[in-house]
Amino acid sequence: MTVTINGQAHQLTTAPDRPLLDVLREDLGLTGTKYGCGEGQCRACTVLLNGKPVTSCLTPVRLADGKSVTTIEGLAPGDRLHRVQQAFLDAEAMQCGYCVPGMILRTVSLLEATPHPTDAQIIDALNGNLCRCCGYVRILDAVRRAAQQEGGRPHAE
């Protein structure tokens, strides 16, 4: 299998039914993608597959063959932050932070499709992402802030 991960092509030899989540974390050391349930119910494991958000816990790695995967580590080059990452930082939208990578990737895909979402659209997009610290007030604030930023350029350090 060949999977492009965060812009780099990887040849993978592994059981094709392994969850993409496990391959990212265990084989490639990309531990920013989190396990929360393995049921598709928390979205802590969200990655972008060809730009679309998927729950990597329920995605067998074979479905990523020939496709590109973006994880939280690959969202912005080097030490820079994507504007959504910056917005989560500015809004202090984290307690333990375990849900945050999934929240950020979902937000990135929401804003690509809908640059200026209403609150109802934000809630629709993120209701599947569980935060057990229940930091939803700030998460909503972070998404609104990200949407208010002009353009989609990554923030400077």
Partner: peptide, 27 residues
């Protein structure tokens, strides 16, 4: 004051217990 590890969290770099990796580690 914001959380000290906030930047590590938004970049996915903070290592939670389940993210620790050691040489030759088994699962």
């Amino acid at each position: 004051h914001p959380a000290q590890n906030a930047r590590a969290i938004v970049t996915g770099r903070h290592q939670y217990p389940s993210d620790i990796r050691r040489p030759g580690m088994l699962y």
